[in-house]
Design a protein around this nucleic acid. Sequence first.
DNA 1: CCATTTTTTTAGGCGTGTCTAATTTTTTTA
DNA 2: TAAAAAAATTAGACACGCCTAAAAAAATGG
Lengths: 228, 228
Amino acid sequence: MKLSLIFVEVLSAAEENYLKAILKLELEHKVSVPTGALAHAFGIQAPSVTDMVKKLALKKLLKYEKSKGVRLTDKGKKLAIAIIRKHRIWETFLVQTLEFGWEEVHELAEQLEHVHSEKLIDKLEAFLGFPRFDPHGDPIPDKKGTIVSAKAIVLGAAKVGGNYKVIGISDDSTELLHYLNKLHVKLGTKLLLQSREAFDGSLVIKIGSRGTESISAIVANSLLVVED
Amino acid sequence: MKLSLIFVEVLSAAEENYLKAILKLELEHKVSVPTGALAHAFGIQAPSVTDMVKKLALKKLLKYEKSKGVRLTDKGKKLAIAIIRKHRIWETFLVQTLEFGWEEVHELAEQLEHVHSEKLIDKLEAFLGFPRFDPHGDPIPDKKGTIVSAKAIVLGAAKVGGNYKVIGISDDSTELLHYLNKLHVKLGTKLLLQSREAFDGSLVIKIGSRGTESISAIVANSLLVVED
DNA sequence: CCATTTTTTTAGGCGTGTCTAATTTTTTTA
DNA sequence: TAAAAAAATTAGACACGCCTAAAAAAATGG
């Protein structure tokens, strides 16, 4: 006989993926998500989605009205955010600690995010120094589920006169890393965008408390920054 | 239509667990493994095992003769060892890097070992400095599948006059860690066991190139060592 | 506003990995 | 060595998460 005094709902990887996908679609379209959109997102057939959303509705993770799409409940949204949090922390770990390329970590994080252990995620987060953005520039929800809405942008798209902080580098060639090293640009470095050359998109930036430097558009577009 | 030019067999977590359990039982009993033993190991019913071993036999991962138990094929053994390798590297990571207690990592590693990425394991291994034993003192198979057979022993069970290397601490109380710190004993420290007091099992050891110290049997039994 | 198209649901099926009940095979022992 | 006990297998079932085919509902537009 199995007893569990503290009832922790354990979801399957498939269920977790539905919650995550629904949250993303809700955020993009700000309305209830049609089942067809989910079928398309997963590359599966629509009837499979109908079955699953019924099951998730029974678990009170979402509201489902026939032919009217689905909306996450608070409970469902909380779980979805927790999964996104796991995903982004794992991605950060893979890139920052194990030196994976930022383009190759998504698939791996898709697997790792389904490991059930909140303690593991919290410890990883602390080990990584409580990063606020993942290597793609997406914000990492905190333990309470708070997400800052601003996605990081590439410096190339930043506005002249703004103060920014480097939170990621979206190209991991060693050449670029060496170059940035020479400029004393690394994660956390603060930058002031002083001007942009209309002709080639090159930028003049002030790097931390150091002097100003000119960087090409190519470099500017591989630096992820947030307003600071 | 799906094409895969390089055919990589992807096993389910359940299949991987069978392989791992069979290898362990083979090593313990050096004979073919009866289906009942597997049922007992997993806490499931015997007919479930019969079904699964038939499937694994079809995949050429083991030899199955009705009512005569199973034996891994070379292919099956290779995969089983790879899974054990993953498990032990993850355990080492959890204890060494994330500072989990050694008793709490097994269950987590059971999940992490089923993440499919050889590259991830190789990178983790390198990050950890190619550890040769996990936190429980079990040897970590190398990338080729070679396992040293000697499990690490506790220093309390080592023989007088032997040279040993500390590869783990099987008790993670901060008190013990502080004490060991004071003695300058850490992972990798070399010890010479000079004598054992019959009365209370306390030991006199020479620590690295430092002087000799006397340690209690309690401490000796929480130090995992291998002959060096 | 009614017909056509598109979307969604219902119905029924399948492989995985488990189960129980019943049967068969193997082992033990009297 | 034959009967009893133990171990293993077969047979049939079920939840999960997907499928296809067909029906129903919603959206579109002439």
